[in-house]
């Protein structure tokens, strides 16, 4: 799957989980840019992403993400594996 497709699907997941239709993700979006995205909802996002793409991350992978680009890359490499 292309990076841009992954980003688009991530965007839909974010809108749904965080209950905010105005979210527009880019590679450099971080939790600071989206009010609803806090440590409580972060894990809900991770679970939704794992379900959607049918993949499973490791704890250290999840903790290494610095922005949405890192998340998309992690999804991409999981799907390729």
């Amino acid at each position: 799957m292309e990076q841009s497709q992954i980003l688009q699907q991530l965007n839909d997941i974010f809108k749904d989980v965080l209950d905010n239709d105005d979210i527009v993700l880019t590679d450099i979006t971080t939790a600071n840019d989206i009010e609803e995205w806090d440590s409580l909802y972060h894990i809900q996002l991770v679970v939704a992403i794992e379900k959607h793409f049918k993949i499973k991350f490791t704890a250290s992978e999840i903790q290494s993400w610095k922005n949405v680009g890192d998340m998309a890359n992690a999804v991409k490499s999981k799907l390729a594996a």
Binding site: S39, L40, H42, I43, Q44, V46, V47, A59, I62, Q63
Partner: peptide, 25 residues
């Protein structure tokens, strides 16, 4: 606490869905 206790707990128990957050908190 968020970085070193809460987050590892919740990541570990994330299969529990929302209850993982409650448990972690």
């Amino acid at each position: 606490f968020s970085d070193y206790l809460y987050t590892p707990i919740v990541i570990n128990k994330r299969d529990w869905g929302k209850w993982a957050v409650v448990f972690g908190l």
